[in-house]
Amino acid sequence: MKTPDACDGLPDIRYAIDSLDHQIIELMRQRMAYVKAAARFKPTENSIAAPERVAQMLAQRRAWAEQAGLDPHFMETLFAQIIHWYIGQQVLHWRATRAPA
């Protein structure tokens, strides 16, 4: 993958974007493995949401976005959606593996 300045045309740019998107998806898969592993340490289904942890995470992601020169509001909104989806997935996993029969 070429650097942005080294790209000779749209095919190079599209290849790079596709490659980066593929990496993002792979990282999301890895993140899911940790989210599911965390279910082992959640004593109840109600403990999964952890709103204080979510608030801390969103503030940190907002700061990271600012440091990276990205729109902090957009990144906070994006991560809020990502986190909400992962919480739902963790609830489903918790129910499948931990909920009393």
Results as ranks from 00 to 15, higher is better:
residue 3 T to H: 05
residue 22 H to W: 06
residue 33 A to G: 09
residue 71 D to F: 12
residue 49 A to V: 12
residue 46 N to L: 14
residue 41 F to S: 04
residue 88 G to L: 09
residue 52 E to T: 15
residue 34 Y to I: 02
residue 7 C to V: 09
residue 58 L to Y: 05
residue 5 D to M: 13
residue 24 I to N: 08
residue 54 V to N: 10
residue 11 P to Q: 05
residue 32 M to L: 15
residue 100 P to V: 07
residue 21 D to P: 03
residue 27 L to W: 07
residue 86 Y to L: 09
residue 73 H to F: 01
residue 78 L to I: 01
residue 73 H to T: 12
residue 16 A to P: 00
residue 92 L to F: 03
residue 39 A to G: 05
residue 59 A to P: 02
residue 53 R to L: 15
residue 30 Q to L: 15
residue 66 E to D: 13
residue 16 A to K: 10
residue 57 M to H: 14
residue 84 H to R: 12
residue 90 Q to D: 00
residue 8 D to S: 15
residue 39 A to S: 09
residue 29 R to D: 12
residue 75 M to C: 09
residue 29 R to T: 05
residue 25 I to A: 07
residue 73 H to W: 01
residue 80 A to C: 03
residue 94 W to I: 04
residue 30 Q to W: 10
residue 75 M to E: 10
residue 2 K to H: 06
residue 98 R to P: 02
residue 35 V to C: 03
residue 14 R to G: 08
residue 89 Q to D: 05
residue 82 I to R: 00
residue 26 E to V: 14
residue 44 T to H: 04
residue 88 G to Y: 09
residue 83 I to S: 04
residue 88 G to A: 08
residue 99 A to I: 02
residue 40 R to E: 01
residue 96 A to E: 15
residue 58 L to G: 02
residue 78 L to A: 12
residue 50 A to F: 01
residue 46 N to F: 10
residue 8 D to M: 08
residue 78 L to S: 04
residue 93 H to A: 07
residue 85 W to T: 05
residue 3 T to W: 13
